[in-house]
């Protein structure tokens, strides 16, 4: 299988007053055509900034450096802003956590969706409307013809997220970035939306990057997994490897601290606080303060990338 996206040595830094915040610190990963990659991390892990950097959608205080960001044979780092705009929303589209703030409250949802097609000159107005109505039906919105002419406030939270998905998918993108798409939704609705994203992914044979803080959600959707901590990838693996042999102490601890039904034992908790990117230890491993398996060298030397299998890589001194 070929890669749809190949990111090498990506760094994103923000400068605030006199402090340098390394939000994404030298990470490399690939996404295969037609597969789902889940990026898991807690706050400050850089999971969101990573994908925003790929799309070059970060605040002006930020700086992106990368060896390459290759998307379907083109290096996104070398494209002009105008060329980037053609890619965003067309070949790569995004859905966000809060569907209400991503939709324009004053424009009927049908028009908001069909405009995507018109911007990218993919259809004439009549076709655009037809395709929009078909898409609304696809994402599970009942009576799409009437719904076409309604405003965002007339939709419930789950329905709005369906509208967002319709809008993201109408241009038939090759890559969908879903940034915490179900975090603000109720659990029963979350399950429906995840199933919908999976269905659309399989149907359109597109690739999906799912950004989430929820390990369970991540594993349910993924073909491949990435775990991030303090701007670094600490573990990446296929789903099967992840479920059978999760190895990085952070990943193991994160699995242990996720509440499950029918738990007999106590939750494992990770001591300490989420990383403070303003004063992160750049010498050693960023997780060292919270790690229960830390060794002396962990706080002095940056852990190397260790290949546990061709597809399973972690950054930890334990496995050297």
């Amino acid at each position: 299988m070929t890669n749809i996206l190949d990111v090498q040595a990506l760094k994103t830094e923000f400068r605030r007053k006199n402090t340098l915040i390394r939000a994404v610190n030298n990470i490399s990963f690939t996404i295969k055509k037609g597969s789902v990659l889940s990026i898991v991390g807690e706050s400050g892990s850089g999971k969101s900034v990573t994908m925003h950097s790929v799309l070059r959608l970060i605040p002006s205080t930020g700086k992106i450096v990368a060896e390459k960001i290759n998307f379907m044979g083109r290096d996104l780092m070398r494209l002009t802003e105008k060329e980037m705009r053609k890619i965003r929303g067309d070949q790569i589209s995004m859905i966000f956590q809060d569907p209400m703030s991503s939709l324009n409250p004053t424009i009927k949802i049908g028009r908001q969706i069909s405009e995507v097609l018109l911007w990218h000159h993919k259809a004439n107005p009549k076709e655009a409307k037809e395709r929009t109505i078909r898409m609304l039906h696809e994402v599970g919105i009942a009576s799409p013809i009437e719904r076409y002419n309604q405003y965002p406030f007339e939709f419930s939270g789950g329905m709005r997220q369906r509208v967002m998905i319709a809008m993201a998918l109408i241009g038939e993108p090759r890559l969908l970035i879903a940034d915490e798409p179900t975090t603000s939704l109720d659990v029963t609705v979350q399950a429906q939306i995840l199933a919908l994203i999976k269905k659309m992914q399989e149907q359109n044979k597109m690739s999906v990057v799912l950004i989430t803080h929820n390990l369970a959600v991540a594993t349910m959707m993924a073909d491949e997994m990435i775990v991030m901590y303090a701007g670094q990838i600490v573990e990446q693996a296929t789903k099967a490897e992840f479920l059978n042999r999760a190895s990085h102490p952070y990943t193991v601890a994160l699995l242990g601290s996720t509440p499950k039904l029918n738990m007999k034992e106590r939750l494992q908790s990770i001591p300490g606080q989420p990383p403070d990117l303003k004063n992160i230890n750049l010498e050693g491993c960023p997780f060292v303060d919270r790690c229960s398996a830390k060794m002396e060298r962990c706080s002095r030397e940056e852990p190397p990338a260790v290949q546990l299998s061709p597809t399973h890589r972690i950054r930890c001194w334990l496995y050297t």
Binding site: V187, A195, L215, T219, M220, K260, L261
Partner: peptide
């Protein structure tokens, strides 16, 4: 609907 690590997406 509770997401389960390693679980499958049920058709809900």
């Amino acid at each position: 609907s509770v997401p389960v690590v390693g679980g499958s997406l049920k058709d809900v």
